[in-house]
Simulated assay, not measured.
Amino acid sequence: MQDPTGPDRTGHAGCRLLEDARPLLATAQALCRRVQRAAHEAVLARLEEQEREIAAQAEATRGRIAELTAQLEEFDQAAEEVRITRKTLLALPDPSPPTPPAAKPPDHPAYRQIMAVFAAADAPLRARAVCEAMDLEIAPSNVNNVRLKLKRLVERGILIEPEQGLFTQPRP
């Protein structure tokens, strides 16, 4: 047997070891390529998985954008309707305040007499003066009854009380 470290056919020492190592080197290189290919395939698989996830997220986002676009169109339509309504209301003439129905005194002879006294009067009157104009006895009960009737006429807007106890018809 020949010394493996000894000279080979060419006479160089150690070349024999190199020749014996070549198959091992080829095997190691092939193994390295397989490991690289496997790692490469794993990276590619992970990239494909990420691509699918991103595509799914993009599709979900497109769906949400479509929903938001529809909602935005609804808001725009509602805003346009409000703008048109506002413009229409501004174009309408100012409504005149409703005229209240003409106040009517109660249908009682005493009230008709009181109103006749105020129709003939040219100044505000007190309850006592109304009693005198109606030819009633100037008694506290009569003055109080007339004063109550005058207050009722003020509540209904038929008479006004410019100061406490003084009554008159409103002037137009």
Results as ranks from 00 to 15, higher is better:
166 L>N: 06
17 L>W: 05
5 T>V: 09
24 L>D: 06
135 D>G: 00
58 A>F: 11
165 G>K: 08
130 V>E: 00
15 C>L: 14
137 E>D: 07
88 T>F: 04
127 A>H: 10
135 D>F: 05
15 C>K: 07
25 L>E: 11
96 S>Q: 06
74 E>T: 01
104 K>Y: 00
142 N>M: 07
92 L>R: 12
10 T>P: 00
72 L>N: 06
19 E>N: 08
149 K>D: 10
161 E>D: 03
155 E>N: 10
169 Q>D: 01
18 L>D: 03
90 L>G: 05
109 P>F: 02
6 G>P: 14
104 K>S: 04
50 Q>C: 14
94 D>S: 05
6 G>K: 07
153 L>F: 11
27 T>W: 11
64 R>L: 01
33 R>G: 13
92 L>A: 03
76 D>C: 06
132 E>Y: 08
41 E>Q: 15
47 L>S: 08
139 A>M: 06
148 L>G: 06
110 A>S: 01
140 P>S: 03
2 Q>N: 13
168 T>S: 14
116 A>Q: 15
135 D>L: 07
89 L>E: 03
133 A>K: 13
16 R>G: 12
120 A>C: 11
32 C>A: 15
137 E>L: 08
47 L>M: 09
31 L>S: 12
2 Q>L: 15
65 I>N: 01
23 P>Y: 12
118 F>Q: 05
104 K>A: 02
117 V>G: 01
122 D>N: 10
90 L>K: 00
22 R>G: 03
47 L>G: 02
168 T>Q: 12
108 H>P: 04
163 E>R: 14
154 V>M: 12
